[in-house]
Amino acid sequence: MTVTVRLFAVARQRAGAPEVLVELPDPATVADLKRAVAGQHPALAPLLPGMMVAVSAEYAGEDRRIGPDDEVALIPPVSGG
């Protein structure tokens, strides 16, 4: 299945786009998503260990399943001052 992954902050800058398409097996988990993003979009790979994943507007753990209609986002750590 093809999933659209929304990107924010430094992830968006590294990818050069607000979102990327990722090919995943069906069914897939967040862990599968991270592996696929790292393989299909190498510029994002170094960021993945520190990023949160949201599936359908909820933060998701590694074992959360992803369906073809889910909205998926990669959210980098936020810092500010």
Rank of each mutant, 00 (worst) to 15 (best):
G39H: 11
V30S: 03
G67F: 05
A36L: 08
P42H: 11
R35L: 05
L47M: 08
A57P: 02
A57T: 10
D32S: 10
P46L: 10
L44E: 01
V53Q: 00
L47P: 04
A43N: 09
E58V: 00
L24A: 07
E58H: 02
L24I: 09
A38P: 01
R64L: 02
A36K: 13
R64K: 08
G67A: 08
A57R: 13
V53C: 00
G61I: 01
V37T: 05
A60S: 04
Q40V: 02
L24V: 09
D69F: 06
G39T: 14
M52Q: 02
V53W: 03
A31H: 11
L44D: 05
T29Y: 13
T29S: 11
Y59I: 04
E23K: 15
P68G: 15
P25R: 15
S56R: 11
A57L: 06
V53D: 02
V55F: 02
R64H: 04
P25A: 15
P42L: 04
E23C: 14
R64F: 02
L47S: 06
Y59L: 06
P27E: 12
A31C: 08
P46I: 12
G39S: 14
L24N: 09
P42Q: 12
A28Y: 03
D32V: 14
E23F: 15
Y59N: 06
P49A: 08
E23H: 14
D69C: 03
E23P: 09
D26T: 11
M52I: 13
L33S: 07
V30G: 07
V53N: 01
Y59M: 05
V37S: 04
A45R: 13
P42T: 11
G67K: 03
E23R: 15
P46K: 15
D63L: 03
E58P: 00
D32P: 00
L44M: 10
